[in-house]
């Protein structure tokens, strides 16, 4: 799975258009073997954008009915930053139950996991995995994938912002000298313990440096982060 996620993230980084993001969302749905995957975003000017696998009929109907105003997922995630399992939301009102029935008829699964993302200047996005399965299966799925999904959600958002403004990369993702040192040590094949010793920091601090560097580089894991840093000429080993 990790290899596939690395490959997915590499493809994501090459994307330059909204069509490209849409195709990747479809690929990611297939990769996770779930019913649906949805990324939608509202920028600071209030303009919506979405890449999703729901049927267009359902999307049209949803917009026409202005369901965003009662959708518990939207209401429960807006202005939040913790991941939300749909089971924790309030689906009890009559209108919401009707909405849910219609959604179910339109092929939307009974399980959902949504990750709210706060972007720059009030931008807000929601990344959702939707599936049809039992509670036990769903718990196993989310437990196994939550960490990767958190990262991927943020990378997709970052890419959507880049495509929107037509720039290569977002600013403010620069790596500090200490993060580069940490990546260089690992790139040279040193163990974490040895790298930490050379840098006169604890192994714990080293891990946090590497986690932070991984996210800034848009990498799937440590090995990937080292490879990306080398490929972009940020470190030389």
């Amino acid at each position: 799975m990790q290899t596939k996620i690395v490959a997915f993230i590499e493809r994501l980084q090459q994307v330059t258009t909204f069509d490209g993001i849409q195709r990747l969302i479809e690929q990611l749905r297939d990769l996770y073997q779930v019913e649906h995957l949805i990324y939608h975003s509202v920028n600071s000017a209030g303009e919506p954008y979405a890449a999703l696998t729901y049927s267009l009929d359902w999307v049209d109907h949803y917009l026409e009915q202005d369901y965003g105003r009662i959708d518990p997922v939207v209401l429960g995630c807006y202005q939040r930053f913790h991941p939300v399992d749909w089971k924790r939301l309030d689906w009890s009102s009559k209108r919401v139950r009707n909405f849910l029935l219609e959604a179910s008829d339109a092929g939307i699964g009974n399980q959902g996991f949504s990750i709210p993302i706060r972007g720059p200047n009030g931008q807000f996005a929601l990344f959702t995995v939707n599936h049809r399965c039992s509670d036990e299966e769903w718990l196993r799925f989310t437990d196994a994938h939550v960490r990767d999904l958190l990262l991927i959600a943020h990378y997709v958002n970052q890419k959507a912002l880049e495509v929107e403004r037509g720039t290569d990369r977002l600013p403010d993702q620069s790596l500090s000298p200490r993060e580069l040192d940490a990546l260089t040590m690992l790139g040279m094949g040193k163990s974490r313990g040895h790298a930490a010793e050379i840098l006169s920091i604890s192994e714990h601090t080293l891990r946090v440096y590497i986690e932070s560097a991984r996210f800034k580089l848009g990498a799937a894991n440590t090995t990937h982060a080292v490879a990306l840093a080398m490929a972009r000429g940020k470190i030389i080993v």
Partner: peptide, 28 residues
């Protein structure tokens, strides 16, 4: 609590105490 993917006090004001490392990750 705030996620380090957005504005944080430590990244805005205390870089001199973190060896210049601005922590950024949805997991931090």
């Amino acid at each position: 609590f705030l996620p380090t993917t957005g504005p944080t006090m430590v990244n805005d004001h205390f870089l001199d105490l973190t060896n210049g490392v601005a922590f950024k990750s949805p997991l931090i």
